[in-house]
Amino acid sequence: MSKINELILVLRVAYARAYVRIKGVNRDLTHFFIDVFLPLLGISAIILAYKSMGAPENLLGFAAIGGAMIAFWYNVLWSMGSQLYWDKEQGNLQLYIISPAPLIGILLGMAIGGAFNMSLRAITILIATSLLFNIKFNLNAILPAFLIFILTLFALYSLGMIFASTFLRFGRSISKINELLGEPILFFSGVYFPLKLFPIVIQIVVSIIPLALGIEGMREILILNKTLFEIIWILILLIALGIIFFVIAVKMLEYLEKLGKNQGTLTLKWD
């Protein structure tokens, strides 16, 4: 297969896998309502807590942005990280393996579909929070904020692809790993509070978490009215992380497929 044909196949597979995600999840609109409603309960509690302590308006906006982004992290863990494992249990993975479709196309499609679904929800949550608690965002800076948002998703879902390849080997303990990673990463991403509260060493360490960077970047732009130029380091880091994570994901997937074929773990359920 020539490189061009291979690329076309990757894109076709990615489109089809994204279609499954988007069509499947949005067929029933109650899912959408619930996905927005549930996080809204939690974010409202946080904003009310801030209000009860007489916190400055900025912190309310910070919590709204961070709260809306939480869904992406859970999506990366549960719908990216664990997905190939579920696919294996279901029998889909062996069909992927024995077809000419490259696994990277499947992962790419999962990422695009998941990111699209979650974006619709996150934006709705943000608008709802803004209306409910009268939180003002710098709407003139929507485009730079969107750029940060897209780069965050690129880096975050590339990380998700790494998880998908890695977690496949953990088998049944996968839900435990997801649970262990869930809240700690939300905490270190400062979803409800500014990252600057952390000591500087921790701030540096957490800048390898795309979620932390993305939330920080969007807050700086939408709440603190900074320009893209002023937070260029976030932009550069997000691009770098995205590329690095993506390359690692591709390499890991290749390695995993080889290892799986050697050891027979990829389709083990079959035995």
Binding site: N5, R12, V13, Y15, A16, V20, L95, Y96, S99, A101
Partner: peptide, 10 residues
Amino acid sequence: FFSQLYGYNR
């Protein structure tokens, strides 16, 4: 979906 794994166009 499965047909797409074999390179058919949409």
